[in-house]
Design a binder for these strands. Sequence first.
DNA 1: CTAATAGTGTCTATTAGACAGTATGTT
DNA 2: AACATACTGTCTAATAGACACTATTAG
Lengths: 295, 295
Amino acid sequence: MLCYNLYVNKYYGDGEKVFMEEIYNSEEEFLAAYNSDNFEKLSLTSDIVIFSVSSEEVDNYRKNEKKSMSVLLVKRTTYPFKDKWCFPGGFVKIDEDLEAAPMRILKRETNIDNIYLEQLYTFGDVKRDPRMRIISTAYMALIDKNRLDTLLNSAASWFDITLLEEEENIVTIVLDNGEKKIKLIIEKVLRDKTTDRYTYKVIENEDLAFDHAKVLIAGIERLRNKVEYTDIVFNMMPEFFTLKELQQVYEIILNKKLLDPAFRRIIGSKVEKTQYIKSGEGHRPSALFKYKNTR
Amino acid sequence: MLCYNLYVNKYYGDGEKVFMEEIYNSEEEFLAAYNSDNFEKLSLTSDIVIFSVSSEEVDNYRKNEKKSMSVLLVKRTTYPFKDKWCFPGGFVKIDEDLEAAPMRILKRETNIDNIYLEQLYTFGDVKRDPRMRIISTAYMALIDKNRLDTLLNSAASWFDITLLEEEENIVTIVLDNGEKKIKLIIEKVLRDKTTDRYTYKVIENEDLAFDHAKVLIAGIERLRNKVEYTDIVFNMMPEFFTLKELQQVYEIILNKKLLDPAFRRIIGSKVEKTQYIKSGEGHRPSALFKYKNTR
DNA sequence: CTAATAGTGTCTATTAGACAGTATGTT
DNA sequence: AACATACTGTCTAATAGACACTATTAG
């Protein structure tokens, strides 16, 4: 059959092209003649907010360790944003499923498998990358830091997170890796009156590259929300843990104290007591529990 | 100053390129020499699941109208997937913010402003589009259908949604626009034991283009989740409504009956009684309420 | 013994679920 | 009067919050 590969272009009112490919007689024929260069193209990256929990020794030997949330950042060695910090990330390859990219990057940075990974949000402002148009799909990963021996990437480092104040929709976040303190001030603006969605306006940010301050707060809020109605925290816990340790993780994520009896009541159905005991802490020993896999 | 634009390329173990741009002395200098063609590029589209509520007359004049959830689909007139149905969508332009694309498309399809719009999920499997590598960021929009006089796009049509059964993680969805019935069977597979996240496996789908069956179920579940803890439904309601109408919208989204007293107790703080009354329905008239903007 | 945390019992306040009842229009 | 829905009162069950108490170890 004779067939001319003619394009008859037609446009919507907003300038978007509508292709009229009525010349083709089948999908196969159309695809064979298809030229992808007719569309404007851009690049896609994937950045990962990797959360974990840190423990800090306290002066008094009797007291429990102090816990905090921490996040993995990488110091940039190249332009743009040379010497600033950012989340581990990279370009999504043309022949790679979207989710495969963060999985590959996680493996590269941590060398462990079976990490909790969840798509967070896709950031796509025109000017978010000074080089060119780059869209970034951010992911959130949760990990028990103790599963990692050493960080593979020498430029990577764990930063403890402190949420200093959260009044009048101004959030101050301080990230601290022991050497470097990063301070962020972000304003949360309610997007509409019917839901809890915010747009984030970065008021102060000296040290985080790109729009990663927004990515961070999106990650923190997603984690905080999900903690309330899922068992997501167990992805940040070791196999065996005391109920107090678990409670402390809930507390740092929710940024508020919980009452012991209520916490134990609620969490009781999700955990299983083991035969093991954590002792030698200068006070009454604690039973070790593990996550109960029911479902 | 003399400056050679040399690239010294370096690769990660997984084949991703690490650029070494130490030749440059400043960010400005680097950007001036930057060539975006060094990266593989792809296209990004934005598809929108537009939900609304339909009313259907009932044989008995005394009875209330039957409500159902509906979604806007467009019949494709071009390859690929010619004559199949899909969500309104289009390419994200190179100089257009990510969220501007669905807003532009919504305006094109409905010609109304101030539509509730929320980013849903980014779908990026390599083979989701047979033409080339296209990533799609799906959005969910909510609208009161009665604000629209006529659909601007003659190929667009509202389909009522029926969720036939939902047992053993198999969901059967029937879409019906009066002329065409679209049947989808989707299996939900739990992704991990700690959260409520699923991967969707399309078992039967004759009529929806691309991966839009997955987009649809993602939209339905997002809407259903958000209805429980936000005021999102009011975006689908007219300015004035009876409490029973509002209750029916909750019921069709949640796919279960609610008890009147409990519903009125809970919703009571969110609505405001007006002076208006809906009468002439063959039974006791009902007070009209409106959404109370507190926040 | 003391400091510190582990773990429990119980009261109260709040919220959700259920059902039965009363109220009020149209035909 | 009959039908259909609008709207309310109240009991009960379940859950969340608060506080006080007992238990157990290292030093």
